[in-house]
Simulated scan of single mutants.
Amino acid sequence: MEEPRPERFTADEFIAWALEQPSGRYELHHGRIFAMAPERVNHARAKAQIWLALRAALAARGLPCEAMPDGVTVRIDADTVYEPDALVRCGPPAPGDATEIDDPVILVEVVSPSSRGVDTGLKLARYFSLPSARHYLIVDTEGRGVTHHRREEDGTITARILRDGEIALDPPGVRVRVADIFAGL
């Protein structure tokens, strides 16, 4: 018989619980677990493309940063844990057995019909509550555009919608071509 799970989780309880699950992807919003829906092929392709583009840009510049695909978590606070579609962190490499990244510089979400409202609203505010967060990219495969939210030096958040050209991500000091994100879609 399966143990009943609590109605609300802390971030620590959620991560321990999620590591025990045989399959599926989950996030924790204000103490409540949300299962993430299966992904469409273009969603998965866009996630892979942005991760590859970020990884290549970092490698080309030889920066002490790493791009990570989805799978690792980002703790927002004591009862909220997200799993971005890609992220970049800088500094010494994260330990290989780590399950969370606490200092992302760039966070990426590829919107889907079921996640659009959360990705463009709640996560925007919550990701920028992290002191390390400087860029939040929202990739829209249907509209073939990227909304780039950037925290300026004075703390102001600015936004640009790009359908072509390059996305300047400084820090860490790289550029990613919008066309590379949508290649093959």
Rank of each mutant, 00 (worst) to 15 (best):
E2N: 07
E3A: 12
R5M: 13
E7D: 11
F9W: 14
D12I: 09
E13T: 10
L19N: 14
P22V: 04
G24R: 04
G24P: 03
R25Y: 05
E27L: 04
L28V: 10
A35Y: 03
M36H: 06
A37C: 00
A37D: 08
R40Y: 07
H43Q: 11
A44I: 03
R45I: 12
A46W: 01
I50A: 06
L52C: 08
L52E: 14
A53R: 08
R55F: 09
A56S: 11
L58C: 10
A60Q: 15
A60G: 15
G62M: 04
G62C: 02
P64H: 04
M68K: 13
M68C: 01
D70H: 05
T73R: 09
R75L: 13
I76T: 01
D79G: 05
T80Q: 08
P84Q: 05
A86Q: 11
A86M: 08
A86D: 06
L87Q: 08
L87A: 05
V88C: 02
R89K: 13
C90W: 11
G91M: 03
G91D: 06
A94I: 14
D97I: 00
D97H: 03
E100L: 06
E100D: 12
E100G: 07
I101M: 04
V105L: 14
I106P: 08
P113Y: 02
D119T: 00
D119V: 00
L122H: 11
L124M: 12
A125Q: 12
S129W: 13
L130A: 11
Y136N: 12
I138K: 06
V139G: 04
T141R: 13
G145C: 12
T147D: 14
H148A: 07
H149L: 09
R150L: 05
E152A: 07
D154V: 02
T156P: 01
L162V: 00
D164V: 00
D170F: 05
V174C: 03
R175P: 00
V178N: 07
V178R: 02
A179V: 01
D180W: 07
L185E: 07
L185H: 07
